[in-house]
Simulated assay, not measured.
Amino acid sequence: MRITAAQRTENENRIRAAMDRLLRGEIPPAGKCDIKTLAHEAAVDRTAFYGTRPYAHLRVEFERRVQALQKTGEIPDPREAQIARLKAEITNLRERLTQAQQTIDELTDFRAQVLARLAAQHEEIFRLREIAAGTSTVSRLPSRTTIIGTCS
């Protein structure tokens, strides 16, 4: 069925109005910032936006405007913005997890080194005590309680 020039102008006006709403972020609950939602919001058949159909130039304009917004960092679709934010957060959390795991590994290695050093020092103390006990030139001092007890 052919449409008149007035109907085509009216459809283009509806499409442009729907395009502006979508690009401002006024996305309907079940929609996205895409051609399907644009066609639904403008009450126009989606196939009219493809090939040599009458509104193909509006599809190109819409896609160009969406890309321009995305290049400036604006994402008109809140779900797309949320997805981008969550992906960035996941990347950040993975980096933090890697750093935390690296720190844990370093601390585990440090703990093992410290325990090995303490064990070596403990063995050295026992070895020196045995040497000191076997040497007769080392004399033991009386304990403090013995000195106090003899003074009274």
Rank of each mutant, 00 (worst) to 15 (best):
A119F: 03
A30W: 13
A56Y: 11
E10V: 14
A48H: 08
H40N: 11
E61R: 09
A88W: 02
H122M: 07
T98Y: 12
L38F: 01
V66M: 09
I75M: 05
A100D: 07
T108P: 09
T47W: 10
I90Y: 05
P29G: 07
A84Y: 04
T137D: 13
C33E: 00
Q70M: 10
A6H: 15
R2C: 13
G31C: 00
A119Y: 12
F62I: 02
L22R: 01
E80F: 00
Q121M: 10
Q7G: 04
T135Y: 08
T98G: 15
T103V: 09
F62V: 02
Q99R: 07
A42N: 01
C33T: 02
R79S: 04
L141T: 02
Y55K: 07
H122V: 03
E106S: 10
L128Q: 13
D34Q: 03
L38N: 01
F49L: 05
V138Y: 08
A88T: 07
R65E: 14
P76K: 00
A81G: 15
A5K: 15
I83F: 07
A17I: 10
A56G: 13
K87G: 04
P142I: 00
R24A: 08
A17F: 06
V44L: 02
A39I: 02
V114R: 07
T9A: 11
A30Y: 13
Q67T: 14
S139L: 14
P28F: 04
C33G: 01
I27H: 01
I90C: 05
R21V: 04
D105V: 06
L86W: 01
T150N: 12
V60W: 09
A68H: 14
A30H: 11
V138M: 06
H40K: 10
M1Q: 12
R79P: 00
M1D: 10
A120Y: 00
R85M: 05
G134T: 06
G51R: 08
L93Q: 10
F126D: 13
R21E: 08
Q102M: 08
R59N: 08
R140W: 12
G134A: 12
T37S: 03
I3N: 06
R144M: 10
I131S: 11
I35S: 03
T52Q: 15
A88Q: 07
L107G: 05
L93T: 12
R127Q: 11
F49T: 03
L97N: 14
L22K: 00
T103I: 15
Y50K: 10
R144L: 09
E12C: 13
Q102H: 10
G149V: 04
D34G: 05
T37D: 01
A17L: 05
L115R: 12
D20P: 05
A100L: 13
I104C: 10
Y55Q: 06
E123R: 11
A42G: 01
T108F: 02
P78K: 01
R64N: 13
D34P: 03
R59E: 08
Q7T: 05
A18V: 00
P54H: 13
A120D: 01
T52N: 15
N13T: 14
R144E: 13
L128R: 09
G31Q: 00
E123H: 06
E123F: 03
G134I: 02
C33L: 01
Q70W: 04
R117T: 11
A42R: 00
H40R: 12
P142Q: 04
Q113P: 05
L97D: 09
T150P: 11
I75F: 02
Y55E: 03
I125M: 07
